[in-house]
Design a protein around this nucleic acid. Structure first.
Length: 474
RNA sequence: GCCCCCAUCGGCUAGCGGCCUAGGCCCCCGCCCUUUCAAGGCGGUAACACGGGUUCGAAUCCCGUUGGGGGUACCA
């Protein structure tokens, strides 16, 4: 059996959302797993909505995700003469015909059919036009589209890899438009035409395209080509179980990248919506996914995109990084996001090890460890907790005294000094440490206390504790 | 309206007739780790949509109902 050829056909009309990315990913995983080839093809025949910017963005996102391709990127707008030639052939052979119906007529027809309980498809009015009638309309210069002459009886069926046998009534399909009045092809034609021309063996796409399959198969038949193998992937839904859109908050790949999600984590997560390896494996590297991915294990039911699980998984991938890799990723992220902290790479390198265990996304770094790079804003809620403890001044005073006596300013001696202070005060570390933490970081959640103090330095640490003491007294 | 797809814990899923008193992960809730905590450890709550069949036996097969999703453009 020859190696599979798959394609990734984005329509560059907007941002790349995670659902599209998931579909691209499954194509890519399937090709890489089987040793097949990947074709990248931009379907930009809708010129009103397609933009150069979207094309550049799509390529950028795919590269970032590590999804590469062996052929392309092709652009349908550069293949227009091929489609035009095909249109002429189809017309000559009677496999397609010109239609002169106006939008108003079509609308009226739809309404009539709706009222009669009939499927909303074109009646085929222009299909039966005699040669002279066509000539007359052409002479009039009437705008026309080209419709594919669908079989009027029988059924069309596929054996979908994820859905099994699916069958449609041909009579219910209608003669769809394959060329617009401006001569450009529609998706229903350009997509299967290119799939044939590019030797695509496996069409792996979203379930939303399942209903268009019989009409595309009709193109295969008209062109006398052998149909591909189909695999219709389950939809990726928003939390309200509706098709993903901007209404669902962060849905574009770029948004997750900007938040500090690792591409390997996003890929790992996306692989898990609609597919699983077994009953317990969750965290996987990209090479592992390539090795394990099969279409047979894709499940047919739609899934909700869970950003929380993605972030958890990202934390797992963050922790799986070697310390140097983590520091590098963090520095790069800070640079890319334009953070002023990026200008202190050495400092970032020193702070990185104490936050790697706790971050879920790189984007949390500034809020989590920003206090080690300069004065940090004091969180109102955290400060309120300090004030709520009437003994806070006592704890801070004891901490100040203990820290002032530390000989070597390093985490271990600091730990020993603070532990001694706890004993002396007869209080649990959690009680004594809370105000210290808020005093130095402005928050109740931060990296390890001893390491934080070490990195802050004796003078600055004591200064912040004194500040807090002053504020409590005021 | 018409057509198609889907249906296991709140979410992602395992399960392809007996291994299921239904397993894993996220979330949530406890407890632990003489440091907050978003990290780690331990534990817990929680599901086979419903009704008929088939079978010695059904979460698994069939039919129906209900529910959800998608499509129905000179968008892709």
């Amino acid at each position: 059996m020859p190696a599979p050829v798959v394609r990734m056909p984005p329509s560059p009309t907007g941002w790349f959302h995670v659902g599209n990315a998931r579909t691209m990913l499954f194509n890519w995983l399937y090709a890489r797993h089987t040793g097949g080839r990947v074709v990248l093809r931009f379907e930009d025949t809708d010129r009103a909505r397609s933009t150069e910017e979207a094309i550049a963005q799509a390529e950028d996102v795919l590269r970032w995700l590590g999804i590469d391709w062996d052929d392309g990127p092709h652009r349908q707008t550069q293949r227009l003469d091929l489609y035009a030639q095909a249109a002429t052939d189809l017309l000559e052979r009677g496999a397609a015909y010109p239609c002169y119906c106006t939008p108003e007529e079509l609308q009226a027809e739809r309404e009539r059919r709706q009222a009669a309980g009939l499927p909303l498809v074109y009646s085929g009015r222009c299909r039966g036009l005699a040669a002279e009638e066509r000539a007359a309309r052409e002479a009039e210069g009437l705008p026309r589209v080209i419709r594919l002459a669908m079989p009027v009886e029988g059924t069309t069926a596929i054996e979908d890899v994820v859905r099994g046998h699916v069958e449609w009534e041909n009579a219910l399909q209608g003669d769809h438009v394959i060329f617009r009045s401006d001569g450009t092809p529609t998706y229903l034609f350009a997509n299967p035409f290119d799939d044939i021309a590019m030797g695509i063996t496996h069409v792996i796409r979203g379930e939303d395209l399942l209903p268009s399959t019989p009409r595309q198969l009709a193109v295969y038949a008209a062109l006398d080509a052998a149909p591909p193998t189909y695999a219709h992937l389950p939809m990726v839904l928003g939390t309200d179980k509706k098709k993903l859109s901007k209404r669902h908050g962060a849905v574009s790949v770029e948004e997750f990248r900007d938040r500090g999600v690792l591409s390997q984590a996003l890929v790992n997560y996306l692989a898990l919506v609609g597919w699983s390896y077994d009953d317990h494996t969750t965290v996987m590297t990209v090479p592992e996914l390539v090795e394990r991915f099969t279409l047979e294990r894709v499940n047919p039911s739609a899934g909700v995109f869970d950003a929380e699980k993605l972030e958890w998984l990202n934390g797992e991938h963050l922790r799986a990084l070697a310390p140097e890799e983590f520091a590098t990723a963090l520095q790069r992220y800070l640079e890319a996001s334009g953070s002023p902290i990026a200008e202190q790479p050495e400092r970032v390198g020193r702070v990185a090890p104490i936050v790697q265990e706790k971050l879920r996304t790189l984007g949390q770094f500034e809020g989590f460890a920003g206090f080690l790079f300069g004065e940090a804003p004091v969180d109102a809620g955290a400060w309120a907790r300090v004030e709520a403890d009437a003994d806070a001044p006592r704890w801070l005073g004891a901490a100040r005294d203990a820290l002032a006596g530390v000989a070597a300013w390093e985490a271990e001696p600091i730990h020993a000094a603070l532990a001694a202070a706890c004993d002396q005060q007869g209080v649990k570390p959690r009680v004594l440490y809370m105000p210290i933490r808020v005093a130095i970081s402005g928050r109740t959640v931060a990296p390890g206390l001893y390491e934080s103090l070490e990195l802050l330095g004796r003078d600055e640490s004591l200064r912040r504790i004194e500040d807090a003491l002053g504020r409590l007294a005021a």
